[in-house]
């Protein structure tokens, strides 16, 4: 379980996060929803210790983040985290070199699935294919938790479908996933839990299944309710 406890962060004088708390469980897909600039990416960065927070605490399976945690949790930012001059093959080799949790078999499986070629240079790939490589680098790690920042933004419709397919496959099953998005439509059916963010605070945290069964509402319904107040 990833526990985000009361974290705050300022950018200069601007308070971006004002005591954000939520949890994300293993085996569930948790979605952080909010308009652009609401601090979703900052939360992701904070979980990965990529940016300092002013106060609060983040625990992963009850422990603070350390270098070993990076074998257990990974982050797929919205831009590729490999050098553009590398080929896909070199990128895979790099990951294999540094991560014990790297799963070569799964990497090959994903390569085939995404129809990517090892000898292609990252800089020469289309936007959609770059996003797929980026996703591949995260998914081929045998980690318990997967953080994805806006995986569907700015990608063509076919790539999007391919990526969405991944979410329902064994590649994601059993893992804890946190994704951020500012438009819910495409993935509403995929997600288990929603955290609604607004102006640096969590407005609502709920399981989609529960509200659908108990209140008969969709995620969009709840969002409308919350943001109209």
């Amino acid at each position: 379980m990833i526990e985000v406890k009361d974290i705050s962060k300022n950018f200069g004088r601007k308070k971006v996060l004002k005591g954000v708390s939520f949890t994300a469980n293993k085996g569930e897909i948790t979605c952080l929803i909010g308009i652009n600039g609401v601090g979703k990416t900052t939360i992701m960065n904070a979980i990965m210790n990529l940016t300092p927070i002013k106060s609060g605490e983040i625990l992963i399976d009850g422990e603070k983040l350390s270098k070993k945690t990076f074998e257990k949790i990974t982050f797929i930012p919205d831009a590729i985290t490999m050098l553009p001059q590398m080929t896909i093959g070199e990128a895979l080799q790099f990951m294999k070199d540094f991560y014990e949790s790297w799963n070569s078999e799964r990497a090959n499986e994903l390569l085939t699935f995404f129809r990517l070629k090892e000898e292609e240079k990252i800089s020469s790939l289309s936007k959609g294919n770059t996003a797929k490589v980026n996703l591949l680098l995260g998914l081929a790690l045998d980690v318990d938790y997967l953080l994805m920042d806006e995986p569907f933004t700015g990608i063509d419709i076919f790539s999007r479908e391919q990526i969405a397919e991944v979410f329902t496959s064994h590649l994601v099953e059993d893992r804890g996933v946190i994704i951020t998005t500012h438009e819910i439509n495409d993935i509403e059916h995929l997600i288990d839990k929603v955290v609604l963010l607004d102006e640096g605070v969590v407005r609502k945290e709920f399981h989609t299944e529960e509200v659908r069964e108990n209140e008969g509402k969709s995620v969009v319904d709840v969002m409308r309710e919350v943001y109209k107040q």
Partner: peptide, 17 residues
């Protein structure tokens, strides 16, 4: 800087920074 954000990768390596 630039198109890539390689620093993400470097800081997320499972080794002492």
């Amino acid at each position: 800087f630039g198109k890539n954000t390689f620093v993400y990768r470097l800081l997320m390596l499972p080794t002492a920074r």
